[in-house]
Nucleic acid binder design. Structure first.
Length: 461
RNA sequence: GGCGGCGUAGCCAAGUGGUAAGGCCGAGGUCUGCAAAACCUCUAUCCCCAGUUCGAAUCUGGGCGCCGCCUCCA
């Protein structure tokens, strides 16, 4: 097996991947808080880690991939109040929307999708233990985690506790002993969803759910814990604090974080009203194209989203797809000369080397284009392109299937062929224009007959 | 203020010491009745300055510009 290297936020370095248990990978990905539809930022994160998960599987690892749903939270309650619906209706609606979006992006299902609300008793158990160990304290109906009680606090985000307090914008809550302390258990206000606990009715704080689900689904120390760059602090830092104070063991060996999607160099945010949902994108391009667009850049670098970029991706991706479709494997004709065969083997090796170098899909895709030239020149090796792309979650079967055209279109094609055969070129050209303008179909003449292609429109704006 | 990241052709984007992948767009060519597709050719010395080195986009120092985190956030 080729050595795999990945960027670990914890060490700040690229490290060789060595799983805790040979041949197996325990992988936890922070999922969505289900109070709204997913946007491009979500798409990027989930495409990135889906690709990583697929590649680990390709390398032969048995990957247990867990992704949670945060289905209890302030924002959900707020949303429920706004639209005057029960919390459950909100969460089930957006969970369904989540799966629709992910299917469009060809994201594989996780091994399991634990819901926070199903782990409340486990969270209470953890909180009790943290209180016993002196890492948490009861303050009214709340329970807070004592940040100064964990000497390694800040090791993931490289923050120094004193600096955090000095520049703190956190409300100095009366119940907190230290401004950096965070809530493990929140007492319920009237009308809010709540669960009974030793500290009265209430609900869990945000971070504790992941600690509980990681522990119960995967164990005390896992191989990979992943999420968006914005989760490094405070979410993952707090998870580490809770879990490591509880078990005395490292929570995760490797921490992976994807870079942000920005719009016109600004982070997407509700206040700037520049959030673009996945559904919005899918009105313009297929999920495959969006996936390709995201994979064209390395997952850790910032990505400046633009419709122009999306259009470019559409054109580039179409070329790859056409190359596969136009060059069906022919097993009777002779293979090209050895130097070309060697080049192909070489490109395939480079593809995998790039993927093993912190999942550099951008570089890897570059080799696919070089391969494309060889395929179009020789008519061979289309399977290598197809299989490599499919490792990245591209070229799903439906994309590679032939377009279906109406009888009307097929009749026009036949008419054009007849006109051409009789050298009535004015007529054949008229029909061709009609196909393009009226039916959105282009026609390509090849030695073995005409090839039809549906025009994919992407509107830049 | 603290921490982190980024600045490579018109645009997108790889490349972390050995002389700039790849894509989109554009130009010219081959093929074609003409096209389309495909193929071929062409388009950068890497934000600026100084330094280390036989050699730097890549390392060091100093600038300039942009962004993120430090508050909910993929």
């Amino acid at each position: 097996m080729m050595d795999l290297f990945l960027s670990n936020t914890l060490s700040g370095k690229k490290e060789r991947f060595v799983p805790i248990q040979e041949g197996k990978v325990s992988f936890y990905l922070c999922g969505v808080t289900v109070y709204d539809v997913c946007h491009i930022g979500h798409a990027r994160a989930y495409v990135a880690f889906d690709t990583i998960r697929r590649y680990l599987t390709h390398l032969g690892y048995q990957v247990k991939f867990i992704q949670n749903f945060t289905d209890i939270d302030d924002k959900i309650i707020k949303k429920a109040n706004e639209v005057d619906l029960p919390v459950n209706d909100i969460t089930s609606k957006y969970i369904e929307a989540y799966f629709n979006d992910m299917r469009a992006l060809n994201i594989k299902d996780a091994t399991a999708y634990p819901h926070a609300t199903h782990y409340v008793s486990q969270m209470i158990e953890i909180i009790e233990k943290l209180i016993d160990k002196g890492h948490a304290y009861v303050a009214g109906g709340d329970v807070c985690f004592s940040v100064p009680s964990f000497k390694d606090y800040g090791k993931l985000s490289k923050k120094i506790l004193e600096d955090l307090i000095a520049g703190s914008r956190v409300d100095i809550s009366h119940s907190k002993q230290n401004p950096m302390d965070f809530v493990l258990w929140k007492s319920a206000k009237p009308g809010e969803p709540s669960w009974p606990s030793p500290w009265g009715d209430g609900r869990p704080g945000w971070h504790i759910e992941c600690s509980a689900m990681v522990l119960h689904e995967l164990g005390e120390t896992i191989d990979i814990h992943a999420g968006g760059a914005d989760l490094v602090f405070p979410h993952h830092e707090n998870e580490i604090a809770q879990s490591e104070c509880l078990t005395g063991k490292p929570l995760a060996k490797y921490w992976l974080h994807n870079g942000f999607v920005t719009i016109q160099s600004e982070k997407m945010s509700k206040s700037l009203k520049n959030i673009i949902s996945i559904q919005e994108i899918l009105k313009r391009v297929s999920g495959d194209v969006l996936r390709f667009y995201l994979l064209k850049a390395h997952y850790k670098t910032p990505l400046h989203f633009s419709y122009e970029g999306l259009e470019e991706a559409q054109n580039a991706y179409q070329r790859l797809v056409d190359t596969i479709k136009n060059n069906p494997e022919s097993n009777h004709s002779q293979l090209p000369e050895e130097s070309i065969q060697k080049e192909v083997v070489d490109l395939e090796a480079k593809f995998h080397k790039a993927m093993c170098d912190d999942f550099n899909s951008a570089e890897a895709i570059g080799y696919l284009f070089e391969l494309t030239k060889i395929i179009n020149s020789t008519g061979h090796f289309h399977n290598i392109l197809k299989n490599s792309g499919q490792l990245l979650g591209l070229f799903s079967q439906s994309i590679l299937e032939d377009d279906v055209f109406s009888k009307e279109v097929l009749q026009l094609v036949e008419d054009r062929a007849k006109a051409k055969a009789q050298k009535e070129f004015a007529k054949s050209d008229t029909i061709r224009n009609q196909l393009i303008e009226v039916h959105g179909v282009t026609i390509e003449d090849t030695p073995s007959g005409s090839r039809l292609k549906r025009i994919r429109r992407t509107t830049a704006s």
